[in-house]
Amino acid sequence: MGDLTGANAGIVIPPRNGAKLAFDEYNKTNPAVKIEMVEYDSQADPSKAVALAQQAIKTDKIVGLVGPAFSGESAQVGPVLEEAKIPSVSASATNVKLAENGWKYWHRVLPNDGVQGPSIADFIVDGAAAKNVFVIDDKSEYGKPLADAVRGQLKTKGATVTDDSLDPAESDFSSVVNKVAAAKPDAIFFGGYYAAGGNLLKQLRDKGVTAKFLSGDGSLDKGLIEGAGAENAEGALVGCPCYIATPDVTDAKVKGFADAYKAAFSADPAIYASEGYDAATVFIEAIKAGKTTAEDINQFISTVDFTGVSKQVKFQPTGEVEAKDIYIYQVKGGVITLLGKAAEAKLG
């Protein structure tokens, strides 16, 4: 379930494809129990999502749900699934508070927003060797907490932090850019979405600011490169709790997934595709183990432990996944490439 046709469908279709691929592969093996996948297009509207969830439970009699995709709809759909005792695994909802509801049937296969900020800050200081960092946020519900988390951790690690924020509705960020130029930082972190990020990056480079540019998952889109221009975006770094199987991977399992994905959807796996595949695999493992009722499947999920495409999948009692890796991506030659885990990646 998620936004399959709305404004943000671009980050929901890849995990949907990933899940579909997993189920198709499973059904092709002619198992005793086949899995049918039903799609629910919530268009990211929480009230629509709740109505669809009720339809799924009452009419379609689902035994498990991959999704909901976004945090907002997850907060509304969670109680409905909880009451009906239907397990869910989201591949993309990252709001910290979701895990604090005591829901027994809710899970997600990626770390939350509270992990991303500090990990990126660690990377800025350790991996990118920056001491003087300029942190900019877009004042949004997403960008501000993320930037604040980065600021907090940077200060803990002893880096000098200078702050400013911008209004993403504007297109002239010269006042921010002048501040950055005067502060002469080693690195710049922007907490916000790719549209403003691209324009900001272009204006920084036009002013001759050459400091490393970093951002979070909201900027992990080719729109960042289009907005800034390939030349200006070169070398920009973006952190994400997601693991994208870029064409240059060597791991056999990941490569197999990437090739199968490309064959099925004639596109490279994009954001959250491997998480969608892993979320679907959770249910497949349960069915393979002979669990066919929602209650049995949920029991099984609490003990599941397998090597997925994106990570080792094992859940904590809260529904959070055990693995807490944040990945760093870098723009090289106009495309986004994987640099490595935030804790290990180094700029060469």
Partner: peptide
């Protein structure tokens, strides 16, 4: 004024 103001109070105070 927008640009000078932002120097003193930060860009969020511009408007």
């Amino acid at each position: 004024v927008e640009n000078y103001g932002a120097i003193f109070f930060g860009s969020d105070w511009k408007h």
